[in-house]
């Protein structure tokens, strides 16, 4: 791996005030992203998983700076962009692009595909003639697997998968180095998901993109990621190379998530350990004291309720935030 990472997230926090009651007074804070740190090397794909409400999307929006983090540091290519004002952020926007979850909401319903992509191309270079622009739009569409005829269509005339391809084409139009994909396939039919995932993988290889891929689906993450990060209630609880992670998770929460992946083999449940978590995810308004997972953790001990474990390095350079990380031999038989 080369020297500086493309993205460095250090102790990043984003809390949302919950207003209500008398005169819009503050009622509390949602700890959406709480002290999250990681690096992403150039050309790498980092997969982030977690249940809904764990802060994945907020983290994504912080990284692309649609949301300003409260505390911590966000570096892109060695530059601190944590609190950079919107105006001077603009040139940088082209290098960091977000792909949205809902392809039905992420395209302006009143515009043709050519207008949507043309506007993005104009932001990169406005001095291109009409004919060249058309050719460029056609090239973009082809790159994401759509025929040039799609130019004249409107979003409502496209299927979910086709819309997501347009969303990807729009992100590529400005020539980004980093793509943050926020649940890019979870709104799509299963049959289309694989197409979109393969497209993203191909594009990454072809263009040398760095990708932060966010999903709640470990199967999807496995398909695309070099490294996997697991989030729980705003915290990063485990970060490991994908193959090691899937072979032997260290955090009890990771283990529970992995055991919930459906297996094609109907007899699989006989051999593998199944862990069903009890209860709901606690409210991010008031995360539990001590380890945030201790209320649902099957291995919780007295220490877990009292002190919160820090993310610390384990054997093999893996990171886990747990007082009692699972030893390799004990873990699931996968």
């Amino acid at each position: 791996m080369s020297g500086t990472p493309l993205v460095r997230v250090a102790a990043l926090r984003k809390y949302f005030a919950v207003k209500g009651g008398w005169l819009g007074g503050r009622r509390g804070q949602v700890h959406a992203v709480d002290d999250v740190s990681f690096d992403v090397a150039s050309g790498e794909t980092l997969g982030l998983v977690g249940e809904s409400g764990c802060g994945k999307s907020t983290l994504a929006r912080c990284i692309v700076r649609l949301v300003e983090p409260d505390q911590g540091k966000l570096e892109f290519d060695g530059e601190d962009i944590t609190h950079r004002p919107t105006r001077s952020l603009r040139p940088l926007r082209r290098q960091i692009q977000l792909i949205f979850q809902d392809p039905f909401a992420s395209l302006n319903p009143r515009k043709r595909i050519s207008q949507i992509l043309g506007a993005a191309l104009d932001l990169r270079d406005a001095s291109v003639s009409r004919g060249d622009r058309q050719a460029e739009i056609a090239r973009l569409l082809e790159r994401v697997g759509l025929a040039p005829q799609f130019m004249d269509r409107r979003p409502r005339e496209l299927s979910g998968g086709q819309r997501q391809r347009v969303g990807i084409a729009r992100a590529l139009a400005v020539g980004p180095r980093l793509i943050v994909a926020d649940e890019p396939v979870s709104a799509l039919d299963v049959s289309v998901q694989a197409d979109i995932l393969n497209l993203l993988k191909d594009l990454q290889a072809e263009l040398g993109l760095t990708v932060i891929f966010i999903s709640h689906d470990l199967g999807v993450i496995r398909h695309v990621s070099d490294r996997v990060g697991v989030m729980y209630l705003g915290r990063l609880v485990e970060l490991a190379p994908a193959d090691q992670f899937y072979a032997a998770p260290l955090h009890p929460y990771s283990e529970a998530l992995l055991s919930a992946i459906p297996m094609p083999d109907p007899d699989a449940h006989l051999t593998r350990k199944e862990i069903v978590l009890e209860g709901d995810i606690p409210s991010p308004l008031a995360p539990p004291k001590g380890c945030r997972f201790h209320t649902r953790c099957p291995y919780a001990q007295a220490l877990c309720a009292g002190s919160e474990p820090k993310l610390s390095t384990q054997a093999g350079g893996r990171l886990v935030a747990c007082h009692f990380p699972l030893a390799k031999q004990e873990s699931t038989g996968r």
């Binding site: 929006r61 926007r93 082209r94 692009q97 506007a119 932001l123 729009r170």
Partner: peptide
């Protein structure tokens, strides 16, 4: 707060241009 407006912002469009070309037509 719709996603296509966020996408325009993410592409680096200015707020005025977003109002004129993304919001107004709707």
């Amino acid at each position: 707060e719709r996603e296509f407006i966020q996408a325009a912002r993410g592409l680096g469009m200015s707020e005025m241009r977003i109002l004129a070309s993304e919001v107004l037509p709707n």
